[in-house]
Design a protein around this nucleic acid. Structure first.
Lengths: 171, 171
DNA sequence: GATGGTAGTTAGACTACCCTAACGCTTGAT
DNA sequence: ATCAAGCGTTAGGGTAGTCTAACTACCATC
């Protein structure tokens, strides 16, 4: 589908970032990660991973035991945590603020995590923190937002584009 | 880089969505779109497009003149507008609300536009409208947010993960 | 009417990502 | 001791999206 050139100026491809995050999450949850577990978690065949992890090993991000348990090097763990961080922030924003259903929020966060810069991520963190910490902003905002989009008239298609648009509707 | 299976359950691939949006934008701006213009706009070679547009023609989304000027069918235009809508909404959110620099906002919106559902897009629209229309929420919110992230202490790394994290820092 | 630029196409190659099928290596149960 | 299960690897294939290079087709002017 999408490939090279545009998108993803990062050093690692989306898949590779995904692999790293999944290894880290497995290891956090159960203390170890085997290739087969990882394959299950990522819904990918072991063959795919066997090949796909190779470049990550070559770059010194992933390694393994004498028992072939997967390990993250410090560099690999740093990347994994960054990806996980982006994922978490996005999911929280989508679900906790925008009230997108949990499954959708997770699915979309999984994709967007590879597209979004660190800078943007931190802006969203600021945003979440503001809602959390500033009582004069947080609660009223969320209450209004919830009410706002519950009233289905909130977004009405604009006659020009047939899509809910950003120019305020005439009244 | 990223391919098949995960990501993008949409009928069209990210590239194809991109092509449609670009045709639509070119035609909106200057009334016509030629393959060469499109190639320049998308920073892709004409050869890529010549091949890449074929499936879109086969699906009845794109057509051309006797003069080979590119046209969108009604179905093609509908998709193009949807993509453009997602793009616009994202860019506005990133730039106007989160204050991400314009260039970054555009670059990231260009990527995320293919990942995000219509539902989520409309949630963001609701959010933008709320800020725009509700004076008790909009202005104070934005003022606080701007002040908040200007003060660089706003996000501080948490000792646990080394990344600004979502659990409130101990005080 | 030859020359040359612009537009689009075709052919061939490459990379990323995925799959299935077949094989080798433990390891644990019978 | 064998045999089955499970893990990982290898080999071979497929698709999407891109590229370069070589072509065709049309104008435009000289």
């Amino acid at each position: 589908m999408l490939s090279g050139k545009h998108s993803h100026e990062r050093e690692l491809s989306p898949s590779q970032e995904h692999y790293l995050r999944a290894i880290w999450e497995l290891r956090s949850e159960r203390g170890y990660a085997r290739l087969a577990d990882l394959a299950r978690a990522l819904e990918v065949t072991p063959a795919t991973l066997s090949v796909g992890l190779r470049p990550l090993e070559a770059r010194g991000l992933v390694a393994h035991d004498d028992q072939r348990f997967l390990l993250l090097t410090p560099a690999g763990e740093r990347v994994a945590r960054e990806v996980h961080h982006r994922y978490t922030v996005l999911r929280s924003f989508l679900h906790d603020v925008l009230r997108v259903p949990a499954a959708t929020a997770e699915r979309e966060a999984c994709l967007i995590e590879h597209d979004i810069s660190g800078t943007t991520t931190e802006r969203i963190v600021d945003f979440l923190k503001l809602l959390q910490e500033d009582r004069e902003v947080g609660a009223p905002f969320q209450a209004r937002f919830d009410a706002f989009h519950r009233s289905c008239g909130a977004t009405r298609p604009c006659t020009d584009c047939g899509l809910a648009c950003l120019t305020p509707a005439p009244r």
